[in-house]
């Protein structure tokens, strides 16, 4: 298939083309920028929801059930599920689909697994590429399931219009999310596996953390609801979908525009800095110079700031 063909068919939600286009953008194959330019005007229609929370909290199961609920409501769903890439081999075992396979024969659901591929700051770009393709292809809702640990959460969450933060009792470290300081990204909180002992404690911890955060002080601001679910049985999932809708409504055109501006700015700056880095590394002699400067810094013959300034001069001269 020619690239133009792939784009045209992907925009018509032809599964094979959608899938291939995601690969082209993820792998940055020949022509990916051209393809991106063509689909981008068609994006911005889907409700993008990020699902995040610690490993073992039931993210995949919740995503599976959310997809089911959206389908019940007549909406189409795209899913991007991210799993960690092994830092040793660069390979990845992508197992999230396991819990979502029931949807595979439903034309209204598209599931794509991705590895983090160890890119510095590049993960959100690859993910956002997939999200944009699904958005442009006309999926009404796009669910992003994150890895569940670390800074990438915040990064990916920034792609979403609505961020769902899952907690679960009895993981032994109930307040890990709060500690990690990513509490602020949650637009709604889900306490999954509500039949486990310790639910009350988790809820209380979330409440306390929310009260401490600045957001709750502002008049008329969104107060993140705390919902209880049993993703395994689907209990409480309809309420999560309702709450996501509420949140979108609360954002309104203005709020949504603000979020998307934030995302656009971050993305553009990131791509630009990538280009700058690339531009630098393509300069003849640049990598040797970088190595030389690094050695100088290590030997305390130069400080990192002046070394960086020297590198930068190499780019702009």
């Amino acid at each position: 298939m020619a690239l133009e063909d792939i784009v045209r068919r992907a925009l018509a939600r032809e599964v094979r083309a959608v899938s291939r286009l995601i690969s082209i953008i993820e792998d940055r194959l020949e022509g990916f920028e051209r393809a991106y330019a063509e689909i981008y005007p068609h994006t911005g229609r889907a409700h993008i929801i990020g699902i995040t929370g610690p490993p073992g909290s039931g993210k995949s199961t919740l995503v599976d059930k959310l997809a089911m609920e959206y389908r019940k409501r007549g909406l189409t769903v795209g899913v991007v599920a991210v799993d960690p890439t092994s830092p040793f081999s660069g390979g990845a075992l992508l197992g999230d689909r396991l819990r979502m396979q029931r949807h595979v024969l439903d034309d209204g659901v598209f599931i794509r697994s991705m590895g983090t591929r160890g890119r510095l700051g590049g993960l959100s770009r690859a993910t956002s590429g997939a999200v944009d393709v699904l958005d442009a292809a006309g999926y009404d809702v796009v669910l992003i399931e994150t890895v569940g640990v670390g800074q990438s959460e915040v990064e990916i969450a920034s792609l979403a219009d609505t961020v769902v933060l899952i907690q679960v009792p009895g993981l032994g470290d109930d307040i890990q999310v709060i500690k990690a300081g990513i509490m602020e990204i949650g637009d709604l909180f889900v306490v999954n596996k509500k039949d486990r002992p310790g639910v009350e404690r988790v809820m209380a911890e979330i409440r306390t953390a929310l009260e401490l955060s600045e957001m709750s002080c502002v008049e008329g601001s969104w107060v993140p609801p705390i919902l209880l679910t049993m993703a395994e049985t689907g209990e409480g999932v309809a309420e999560v979908v309702d709450a996501c809708g509420e949140h979108l409504k609360h954002l309104g055109e203005e709020g949504l525009a603000e979020r998307r501006l934030r995302r656009a700015r971050a993305e553009t700056m990131e791509i630009a800095s990538q280009r700058i880095w690339q531009g630098l590394s393509e300069r003849p002699g640049a990598s040797e110079e970088a190595q030389r400067l690094a050695e100088a810094v290590a030997a305390r013959k130069a400080d990192p700031y002046s070394a960086a300034a020297a590198l930068y001069r190499l780019l702009v001269q």
């Binding site: 995949s60 075992l93 197992g95 999230d96 819990r99 395994e232 049985t233």
Partner: peptide, 9 residues
């Protein structure tokens, strides 16, 4: 009773 869904890999 419903059916069992396995956990991940």
């Amino acid at each position: 009773f419903g059916e069992y869904k396995p956990s991940g890999v």
